[in-house]
Every structure is written in C-alpha cells, then in structure tokens.
Simulated scan of single mutants.
Amino acid sequence: MSTTPQSSAPNSYPTLTVVGSINLDITATASRLPSPGETVGGGVLRQQPGGKGANQAVAAARLAGSSRMVGAVGKDDAGRNLITAMASAGVDVTDIARVDEPTGTALVLVDGEGENQIVVCPGANGSVSVDGVAFGAEEAVLCQLEVDQEVVLEAARSAKGFFALNAAPAAPLLPELLERCDLVIVNETEYELIPALRNAPLVAVTYGGEGSAIFVDGERVAEAPAVRVTNIANTIGAGDAFCAALVLGLRTGLEYSHALAAANAVGADAVRDSSSQPALKPLEHYIEATRTATRPA
C-alpha cells in the first residue's frame, strides 16, 4: 500500500493517469423521466463527450492543468472527435487506442431536476488494454469498473505508485484488486452493494445531499457536508469530478476532511453545468474556499 500524506497544506499536483471508458453521450432532456412503456415529448437532444474514465481525466486536467488517459475508441468520427475534445482540455491522449469496434455510446435521459437514466453500449471500451503502458512511481492511477475488471487488475498490478478505484458500476471486486487499492471511491448505494469494502483500508463514500465521508478499516474518520445547489443542470459528471478532485487533493497532502470538502465543492460546480465534462476552476480555488469549513467526524 502507498502512504497518503496527511499534512494540512497542498504541495505540487501529482501526475494523474486515468484508465477507463470513453463514450459518446447522447442525451435527451425532458421535464420528467418516462415510466416503462411511456413516451414523454418535448425533449431536447444533444451529443457530448462522456464515459466515466474520460470524464475523470478531463476533470483532472481542468483542476490540475494536465492528466493522461488510457482507453480505446473506434475508428469512426465519434472516436476522433472524443480524442480531440480530451486533448483540447489538457489530457495526454497518447495512450488512447483506435480499434475496429464502434466508439462506446451512452444513451442518457435527464429530467428537469437533473436526475438521469443511462444505458451504456461499451463498444471499443471492451478493447481497453494497458499492454505497453508505463506508469511512474510518482504517478497516481485512477480506474473505474466501466471496463473489464481484469484490465483494471492489470492496471493495478502495473501501477508503481498510488492506485485509486472508483468502484462504479458496483460489482464484486476481485480480492487481489481490492488488496492493491490505496483508495476506493463509491456512492452510498455502491458501498452497500460491495460488502468487502467494510474492511478496506481507505474508502470514500458520497451521500448526495448529505455530503461525503472517509472510512479507514471500516471506521468513519472524517466527513464533509455537501454544498447546497439550487440550480442543478446535470448530475452525470459530478461524481467523476469528485473522484478526480479527491485523488488530487489527497495526493497533495490535504487532511481527509479538507480533501472531501474540496471535492464536494468541485462536485457542486459540476452539477451546475449541463455537460458531463463540466467547466471547472483550478483545484486551488476549491481548496482555499473550503479551508475553514472542514471538521473531523
């Protein structure tokens, strides 16, 4: 296990590499979500970059100035456009493969309150590989479960430094993978669905409007309140922005409660933006804004 520094002030940002999914999000926004068999009219359609992996890499680049993405897209217009969008956000796209499968696609329904329903078609995400990818000792690696868990395990084995897992969508975790994790990030539902996390060394759990908390060996040791947001536009990218911010905050030396508070503030900004890859301020802004608002559990 890598050791997370627990000083009160951040140092320089580490390199953050994200291994995971890249999708084209096709989103229909309507006043409410349809019930099974029901048609709801008056929707607004948009296409935008998405995928938990890409969302986290873009958030990290916007917060810290740069990041790296390891993933796969198709040899189609969608894949080319997604790579261009990530590169323009400051993401190193060198390790994104172009494969024969179609680019991953997410079909997203969003209601007037920002709640959503999502169907994911993995496509090229099924071809993600870390073969030939080098990870540095000072580099933080962040994965999710939208790609094959064996690929995530291989990334964990290859990572020489801090390894974080956003265990979403929830699934039983391979014992070796969980043992290698320096940090696991989940929401409250995922925490309940993955019992093995009760004894994990370091777990961050988000509770929506109730904020977030960190557990060490099953003991709740830190928490931070949620930032109240009244003008919610889209909740899809908020969790991904939170993940990127939390990893960066912890790796720069923030205390647990301060790192949670800063990540909560980043997530709050994310839900105000209709994009799955929202515009964000530099992480220093959120760190300073929450410096006096943290408290232990």
Results as ranks from 00 to 15, higher is better:
211 G>E: 05
207 Y>S: 12
191 Y>C: 07
79 G>V: 07
174 L>Q: 15
250 L>A: 05
59 A>K: 06
253 G>S: 08
99 V>N: 06
199 N>G: 13
139 E>S: 04
243 C>W: 08
121 C>N: 06
203 V>L: 11
83 I>Y: 02
8 S>D: 13
13 Y>T: 00
206 T>A: 12
29 T>N: 05
110 V>K: 04
2 S>L: 03
38 E>P: 09
38 E>R: 09
93 V>G: 00
183 L>V: 04
49 P>Y: 08
103 T>D: 01
65 G>H: 11
146 E>P: 01
257 S>Q: 15
149 Q>F: 07
120 V>Y: 05
182 D>V: 09
87 A>N: 09
213 A>K: 04
133 V>R: 06
190 E>V: 03
64 A>R: 00
190 E>W: 03
235 T>K: 13
213 A>M: 06
142 L>K: 03
90 G>F: 03
10 P>K: 05
187 N>I: 08
291 R>G: 00
113 E>G: 12
64 A>E: 00
229 V>D: 02
238 A>L: 11
119 V>C: 14
153 L>T: 04
207 Y>V: 00
248 L>I: 09
165 L>F: 11
7 S>V: 10
297 A>Q: 07
64 A>M: 04
147 V>D: 03
51 G>Q: 03
141 V>W: 08
217 D>Y: 13
211 G>S: 07
185 I>T: 14
237 G>L: 05
92 D>H: 09
23 N>L: 08
191 Y>R: 13
19 V>H: 05
6 Q>N: 14
294 T>K: 13
224 A>D: 08
166 N>P: 01
90 G>R: 03
51 G>Y: 12
245 A>R: 01
182 D>L: 12
277 Q>N: 13
9 A>I: 12
68 R>C: 08
195 P>N: 10
180 R>H: 09
243 C>K: 02
187 N>T: 04
257 S>C: 12
215 F>Y: 15
134 A>Y: 09
80 R>Y: 05
197 L>G: 09
131 D>A: 15
220 R>L: 14
273 D>Q: 01
161 G>E: 03
65 G>L: 09
16 L>S: 06
243 C>F: 06
169 P>D: 10
